[in-house]
Write a protein that binds this DNA or RNA. Sequence first.
DNA 1: CAGTTTCGTTAACGCCGTTAACCGTAAACG
DNA 2: CGTTTACGGTTAACGGCGTTAACGAAACTG
Lengths: 253, 253
Amino acid sequence: MGHLRAPVTRREKQREATYDEIVAVAAQLLAEGADLSLRAVAGRMGMTAPALYRYVANYQQLVDLVAFELDKAATAEWATAAERFPEDDPAARLTVACVRFRNWALTKPREFALVFANPIAEADSQRRELLTVSTSGHYFTDLLWQVWDQRRFPYPALDELDPVIREAVLEPLIPAKAEHIPSEDRGLLWIYMRAWSALYGVVTLESTGHCDPRVIASGQLFRATLLDWFGPLGLSEDRERLLAIMDEELALR
Amino acid sequence: MGHLRAPVTRREKQREATYDEIVAVAAQLLAEGADLSLRAVAGRMGMTAPALYRYVANYQQLVDLVAFELDKAATAEWATAAERFPEDDPAARLTVACVRFRNWALTKPREFALVFANPIAEADSQRRELLTVSTSGHYFTDLLWQVWDQRRFPYPALDELDPVIREAVLEPLIPAKAEHIPSEDRGLLWIYMRAWSALYGVVTLESTGHCDPRVIASGQLFRATLLDWFGPLGLSEDRERLLAIMDEELALR
DNA sequence: CAGTTTCGTTAACGCCGTTAACCGTAAACG
DNA sequence: CGTTTACGGTTAACGGCGTTAACGAAACTG
């Protein structure tokens, strides 16, 4: 990891600490139901708002910074929860992670909206880059890969894919830990995109509340959506076991 | 429709016109890429901001009002587009409407976010009510009903459903034109919820840009998602025909 | 015509993001 | 070591926001 050189001068350490405090304070603000604002963050740090411009170019960048860190923290949370199952049981881990993702989205809708529902303009290449290194994206891709490595479920060959999609899976722009996936297996990423789309869909629907609250409370819509993917991911044999894990995790909230 | 009595006094007509102008100006503002704000709307109407409080209790209510009308207008758009197929071909109409919905979401992401991605707080019963009468929701439910009426695809019986879901389909809170659906057929609404969740999911993913732009441009993710529903909706026989319609509509943007 | 309701105004408050000008001090340098 | 530079903060100010209060004119109502 010793990449380049880390001249940890006194100043740099100080600066790093300030960044951490910014994120911490912002997260705290969000958790309290307050709005995220430069002034509020600065105020709570005992600073004035213009000072924050030494760390962040504008408001949107503050949002992006906080979003990135929230995503990182949340992913770590799901990951450690998933670790109650051994490394050689990625199916169970994936199940846990998905449910934890949903539970997080439901308990922290504001944070979820910040990370996953805040619009990304086309031209805004800066933000696209941040998106590309999204921690949760890498985590889920990797889990899916592990499941495939074990179950060998079918995926489209490259020449079955639409040319544009083929390009997209060979040279992914989107968060995906895909470097270690050989190009002939990149069809897997199409499965990933489709599965992520489904997961993202229900969770967004539920988290934003565009849904009958009773349906959300029951968890049935989410459950059914996940269930649909057991087959394509070669998990049919584990159906009952995974369902039990799912319901157990669902019951936690 | 002559409900109660409509004493169309001069004042009431004036007031109605002002409401219309508010919505029109707001939509115009949004279309120009400007932010929606009370001051901007008022300004463009030649009024001062506090005057708007005679029409709207606060900013959120302006947003809700505009959202409702945008939804209404957009739905009318999809509906007329769908009418190029006859009434006795609801499958084709549904296909067109879905693609048009997506195209709308992609060309007007700001409007889409306003209507479909703006969070609805739990306690906020006022906004729930507005959601309940969502025009697009009614439209899609009705189309799905018509498809079922023709194809009789299978749906879960009431006693197969989770009790909470059973309650939710018998006494729907969510936008659904369901009064005319007999209670023994209400399992249909479960299909509706699941299908809507899938549609909402991809469209939101694409509209907010949390997705590889090339994948969006190709339309393949959306196409595949819709394709998955041909089977469950009893449309397998029409597969090729509907796919042709879909691709035709997709090519329009 | 008198009384009241409706619909608009102006003034003001407290937020917000953002910029400009300024300044002490810690680090870097000859 | 002393000088210079650059960093990390300040205050003041601008324009915009939602929102409230006090007020006035015009329109309806009896």
